[in-house]
Design a protein around this nucleic acid. Sequence first.
DNA 1: GTTAAAATGTACGAACTAGTCCGTTTTCGC
DNA 2: GCGAAAACGGACTAGTTCGTACATTTTAAC
Lengths: 216, 216
Amino acid sequence: MDHQLPAQPAPGRTHDPEGVRRNILAIATAEFAEKGFSGARVDEIAAKINTSKRMIYYYFKDKEGLFVAVLEEAYARIRRIERDLNLDGLSPVDALARLTGFTFEYQSENADFVRLVMVENIHHAVHLARSERMQSLNVSVLQVLEDVYRRGVAEGVFRDGIDVVDIHMTMSALSFFNVSNRATFSAIFKRDMVSPEAFTRRRQVVVETVLRYVAR
Amino acid sequence: MDHQLPAQPAPGRTHDPEGVRRNILAIATAEFAEKGFSGARVDEIAAKINTSKRMIYYYFKDKEGLFVAVLEEAYARIRRIERDLNLDGLSPVDALARLTGFTFEYQSENADFVRLVMVENIHHAVHLARSERMQSLNVSVLQVLEDVYRRGVAEGVFRDGIDVVDIHMTMSALSFFNVSNRATFSAIFKRDMVSPEAFTRRRQVVVETVLRYVAR
DNA sequence: GTTAAAATGTACGAACTAGTCCGTTTTCGC
DNA sequence: GCGAAAACGGACTAGTTCGTACATTTTAAC
């Protein structure tokens, strides 16, 4: 959501299309993540942006178009960071631990992303299906994981015959759930899930769970 | 959602309060699970029930009251079945495998339950917080797990020092994610997640993941 | 049988909500 | 500078959505 395009319009300029676009996206992201697609109100988003409601329709066509753009931006961001993890220098075990730990941390720190994905799943991923960028955006994560796994098998530290999609799914599920189900889970079991201690503790459990699954 | 109260009104009777109540709950459950709280329409639910919209407000006060009742019923049902699993006769390893497998199966077969919990989490569990029944409804699952774990440690097949809430969380997360994120995950990775084969395969991975985590 | 309470049906309204109409201002190529 | 296109603002509307006012029927207690 940051550092990719001019944050300020050229001096002496009142029109700033890209800034307007990004401002709308930022506000809409927060609003959709907070209230869901149906719960979010276009008027509410309009009231919070620096420009007028008219601009939402000008740039994104309609409420659904806006949501699709929000989703694309959110996925693009996590994959962008993931690619920069640079796991090549690490041993397979360390690399897998790092990747798992990153996933857990990223999702914990970006509850908006998690909540947007929840919302999209409630809507059976119809918006996501409409976006061609999506698949190409997400192949990288499997490539990174495949690399690490192959090295681990070759070195004899991981057992053979595991599907990397399963590893990714386990990793994602454990990280995702910690945010997505935080409200109900902590309400039911009176469990602290937000303090730094709880975060570190659970992070360790998740990493260990993944490592134990692939270990020989 | 079934077999607990007279399904038919007494013969020669036109009024059937309990039947009306259950009819509304069943329809509302499907509707909220499908569209979410904000997305569901009271008028739509009203159109599908055997009685009139007036009755929704008569029995449940308002849309929120209806949703709370739907949630309570959904949680009560899973815990009811869970208690009847009868794991005492099994070895600790078999019992834990059985409990994990059950959780996975139940959530797979009851997507409505999973989706309702997602919806409630989007709303920060405000409805759930309002229900006192909730906590008492859910303690049983931890007791069952605690029993199995203690036996496993005593017999030397499980390592010591694990928090059972962590085991439950892992178990739930892996089972939950398989349903909650099915739409986005299968759209992004083009992965079959619904066929009987995919179900059995993933079930095995989940059970193994949990067992390997507690193993010595 | 009478009567109060419980259970039910119908029509309607006030508030909200997504999206548009109509117009103005700013930018930029020539 | 000029004209066309891009960028923008504000008021308005058609349709929807939750909830209720008003009225009726059924049940159960005495």
